[in-house]
Amino acid sequence: MKRFICRRLITGILTIFIVFVLNFLLIQAAPGSPVTTLMGKENHDPEIRAMLEEKYGFDKPVIVQLGRQLEMLFHGDLGDSIIQNRPVGEMIAEKLGPTIVLGLTSALLALIIGTLLGVMAARKEGKPVDMVVSGTQYVFSAMPQFWLGLMLIILFSSNLDIFPSYGMTDARADHTGINYVIDVLYHMCLPAITLTLTLIPQYFKIAKSSVLQVTNEEFIQTFKAAGMPVKQIFRKYILRNAILPTVTIFGISMAYLLTGVMLIEIVFAWPGMGRLMMTAINQRDYPTLIGINLIMAISVAVVMLLVDIIYAKLDPRIRYE
């Protein structure tokens, strides 16, 4: 196991490095440039352009620019945002918190609710309960996130005025301590509900099909033939075997949630990574984009490593040698 983790760490770091280099090159290859954004729409003065390009090093060959980026990275510096003129590290650190709070809450809620519903539907397969729950899941999985968000805003904010429609805190109030936490939770209700509702179907589907599949496995017959009570078979043997695919789905979903749920964050004006990235793309803010992509790569690598370790604990058939 230790050797496996070491090896996975090394391959993980290599992957992150390759992703970093590819990102750098791809962004350079895309049309547009931060210099254009800085100069503004009406300004076409070639002298100013040349001056700005020199200032940010865009006049040098791509390979030299890449070398400079890597050198900075080794010193733990992600560089400064060209547009906002602030350190990228600081900007990301500011936005990562809100994204983790929103993403993790929704992912955990969806995992728990989706899995429970899936298990229940599998046990009552073909009965009215199953048909209602499964049908609802299809509706939610076909619903676009942003649309559901907008509908919830119309219903709960505009019409009923129960929940706030935007932001993470009340800008006019200056809460501290427990009041601040409550304020954040209150603001999080609508975005979290939207995200959870659209995440539930994947856990539901995987849990239901997995339970049904294990129920038909031959070893379940063995326990039935031995006279084991159905409840014990279910709790100890079916669930334990059926839970494995859910772990994988949770891992993958988690990794992508950490990089921000762009549409939700824009609809609810949630100050997270998704909005930061959207703005950076529009403004061709290279250092910020590269920084965000690096965080994405690292979070995917770390979560996948964790999933592999958890999987090895849950399934004895997996041996990492």
């Binding site: 496995e217 031959e218 070893f219 017959q221 063995t222 033939a225 043997y237 334990r240 058939r317």
Partner: peptide, 11 residues
């Protein structure tokens, strides 16, 4: 049962 490979829980 028939298929011994599947007649016990794998985990």
């Amino acid at each position: 049962f028939q298929r011994a490979m599947n007649s016990l829980s794998p985990v």
